[in-house]
Nucleic acid binder design. Structure first.
Lengths: 387, 387
DNA sequence: ATTCAATTCTTGACGAAGTTAATTTATGTG
DNA sequence: CACATAAATTAACTTCGTCAAGAATTGAAT
């Protein structure tokens, strides 16, 4: 009987597997160069993964054969060797996906929440998972870990939701509850951090030792990777870009003033759009349409928001100096309205070489939050073997 | 013949030596617990250091003997086993010190610079070093490494000053020039980062995996330690707290607007004090005296600066969530004028648990910059064996 | 005093994981 | 078809750690 989980034992085997997982097909010599190990060590480290079916060698036809010498047989991940569930919990609904080892989404599902209390959510989530896994015998047999993403202060180590303002939860042992309800191993993480992990392993952050992911929407958050590690914050708080003060006003719900979030969150934009147009019933969609149509007042609202976001990004660039910043989130569905002002502000305010930091601005694809949760589940395979 | 340098070979020996160096006397059992190694490994790792005279066991009288069982023989560093030169270069002068392994300053010297060109500075610095080392045969015999701190963009790995605006230097291979002129191994580092290293190893940062050091003076800078490592910035820029935008104005020399430095640097404070009092000749000392005397206009200037610094600190706390922030610098000689406003702003704007981040506000002791440089020299003993 | 318990430190056998160097394998080329 | 070339594997060896047993050093109980 083959082992149920990838045979990750040493630092070397972790390094080999993560490299192959995130950097596509790689030959053993290449791995040796990248990890600094000898090629003999690579051979030894890769063997158990090949035996357990987590890695395989590329077949002859697909090989790259440039010149003389024995051609390489690059290693690739067998992505369907194991599946992972990822679920994002919001106030209104659950978004669930089944993804493979590379977090390619295989199937997904939504569920409207009838109530927001813990018991109901746990029950609904368990049902969602049953539904997802029932869609294929493969999923049922080869899924052992689920990642769950929630906004707020979340302790990944203990699987506790310490405080989630949106859900109104405090000190909920969610991972344990869900593990019992689903029979899966459950990994809990803050939603923005989960998304950052997805980006670090399978997105724009691959191969970078430092980068930042900024999400713009109802809230404004930021995940930070420095030295290859996700920054957690000594007191559980980090990446609170939304509450950086970039102006003298307006007052923010956090008690501060001039916060990025008080200017550039979806709610703040709608509120201000209503104010400047004198239309209390104005919706976000109408504001976007109006601004695209050239309404100077509405354009001003989005410019102001873009400016605030730009200043927030500059703060990240000037303070931690990441290689890249990815700006994303539902709020950027209208990213054509934000982008010019974001870039202009960033170019002006970034200090010296910090301006070299690449800015990638794009809306957030559907289900991406749940995919982030699945990434955390994949990452949990490596816990205890940091690279 | 004993080896000239501490016998640091493996990760374990690095861990043992740094622990003893930074955490005072520690028994081997204690070291085993802290490093996660077996006590047998500690014994083996410590042996070469004892033989080479870098560590010694506490003598009987000084031991702590609490209860039953064999009493511990804690290890301590023999601080005078090796000495280090630290030099800070400013536009006007050189500040040099000789420190021991724990960077206790043994002797120090100043030198007024007659000119600011590279050749002159190198010559003056070499002379300063000769003078310092000549003060004791111990120094002469047991000093092999010098740390040099310069403001601006400095590449520690290559020993190059890439760009130093204050000195007006660009792409100067300063470490090599100084090594030739002094015969010492030279380590070059940015001044704020050097100070951060001093704090991390021998100050408020000991034992913390994350903290920040903020310096207030002519410029406003910040050194960041996250996950036990100094943050360098992907493009050489990090910790540029001075150019965070916290207001809409005034314009800053960096091209941005509302920068912390444009409000709270010594120059900015003097300029504004002159403006509000209508006294173009007002000095910093006069402004301080006036504010202490209760002048509401001058108090307002310092309050405004304290507010800007407070917002900058909040940005650090909210974004990276360090365990502590140390606020220091020559600008804080009048820290009684800043402190209330800094703390008030921080308390108001810090988000959630980020407010738990301890704030330590204190002026910068004399020669501390040069001590920072010496710390970098000490730290260089460990290069390649990160912990 | 002597024995015992407690705790620290040391020692030597062992094992895990890596390296080096030689060897095997697989391809292109004159 | 030999030969050059590069990738992968193998085997002997090195290094660094653990484990388990024992030595050292003290306080407390008999």
């Amino acid at each position: 009987m083959s082992p149920r989980r990838p045979p990750i034992t040493t630092q070397a085997s972790t390094a080999v597997f993560t490299q192959v997982l995130t950097q596509g097909p790689v030959s053993r010599v290449d791995l040796a160069r990248r990890t600094g190990l000898s090629s003999a060590a690579i051979t030894k480290a890769a063997r158990p993964f090949l035996d357990a079916g987590y890695l395989e060698e590329l077949v002859a036809g697909e090989r790259t054969a440039p010149g003389a010498g024995r051609p390489a047989s690059p290693l690739v991940v067998r992505a369907d060797r194991e599946f992972f569930v990822g679920v994002k919990i919001t106030t209104e609904d659950l978004i669930g996906v089944v993804g493979d080892l590379r977090t390619q989404i295989r199937t997904s599902a939504h569920h409207q929440l009838a109530a927001g209390d813990v018991e109901h959510v746990v029950g609904a989530l368990a049902e969602l998972v049953r539904d997802l896994l029932a869609r294929s015998p493969e999923y049922r047999e080869r899924t052992h870990v689920m990642g769950v993403a929630v906004s707020g202060d979340v302790d990944r180590a203990t699987g506790m939701v310490r405080y989630s303002p949106f859900l109104g939860w405090r000190d909920v042992p969610l991972a344990d509850l869900l593990a019992e309800a689903t029979g899966l191993t459950v990994v809990l993480e803050n939603d923005v951090k989960a998304l950052t992990v997805a980006e670090q392993w399978f997105g724009e952050g691959v191969g970078l030792s430092s980068f930042a992911l900024v999400t713009v929407g109802t809230g404004i958050g930021c995940g930070l990777v420095i030295g290859g590690n996700l920054v957690a914050g000594a007191h559980g708080v980090a990446g609170e870009l939304g509450h950086l003060a970039v102006a003298a006003e307006p007052a923010c719900h956090c008690g501060g003033a001039g916060c990025v979030e008080a200017i550039a969150s979806t709610d703040a934009i709608v509120a201000r759009a209503r104010l400047v147009t004198g239309t209390p019933s104005l919706s976000m969609e109408q504001a976007v349409t109006g601004a695209r149509g050239g309404d100077p007042l509405l354009r001003g609202v989005f410019d102001r928001a873009g400016h605030a976001i730009g200043l927030g990004l500059t703060a990240v660039a000037n303070l931690v100096g990441p290689e890249r910043i990815v700006v994303s989130g539902e709020g950027l569905a209208a990213y054509d309205l934000f982008e010019p002002q974001i870039r202009e502000t960033f170019a002006r305010q970034a200090f010296g070489a910090a301006a070299e930091c690449a800015l990638i601005i794009r809306p957030l694809p559907f289900e991406e939050w749940a995919r982030g949760a699945a990434s955390v589940a994949v990452q949990s395979l490596f816990s205890g073997h940091d690279n």
